[in-house]
Amino acid sequence: MNLTLHVWRQKNPQAKGQMVTYPAREISPNMSFLEMLDIVNEELVLKGEEPIAFDHDCREGICGMCSLVINGIAHGHERGTTVCQLHMRHFKDGQEITIEPWRAKPFPVLRDLIVDRSALDRIMMAGGFISVNAGGAPDANALPVPKEHAELAMDAAACIGCGACVASCKNASAMLFMSAKICQFAHLPQGQPERMDRVRKMVAAMDAEGFGNCTNQYECEAVCPKEISVRFIAEMNRDYWRAWL
């Protein structure tokens, strides 16, 4: 199949970017979206032009590096899928595809489709951990965890930190990302000692980074490649006001 791509090109964080149009020829429906971009890039390189820079690594949907907004939807229109796992069979021959980077003030564009997501690391730094040092832990079975709590914690923990929730949110809010970590620990007995402190610190960090606020539109949940539920945002909200009481 043949496609027309409109791609955001931006040389560096200071430069003014623009959309540039490229053809993508002889694309196999079995290719992943990134493999399609690889082909376009090979052609660009052979022409002596700089390839389209995009983040990617594991290419199996788990590392959270890949980060493209395709036709206005983070990770494309297939639900529960990262771009690297999005296959071209979901597009039509002759289709026009617009490819843009994550857009949010806390995610400055580094080049083309690559953005700086270190703001997410800084939210984690504020409290996305249980303060234990290696060596002092009791036997793992000393603290039983009800199966359903463990399952819920795992539902939340599935977050890959890609930032699609931020990219899709019209307010560039990182609530889904943050609530996933807060609720993973809130559902486990190990997370209880720091529970209230954690939610206050992480929310403060998110605010300081300049992310927006949740307006309960649930676009984040719709694009999340791990389909993390906004129930965790509700739970985080509850923990947050309880933390102040």
Binding site: W8, M19, G72, I73, T98, R103, V223
Partner: peptide, 23 residues
């Protein structure tokens, strides 16, 4: 604050499940 957080807009605007009311 929300406007500030999303200072740059997408060229291609799209949503999946946000209702008109919510937007």
């Amino acid at each position: 604050e929300n406007r500030r957080a999303r200072s740059s807009r997408y060229a291609y605007n799209n949503t999946v499940q946000a209702t008109v009311g919510s937007r």
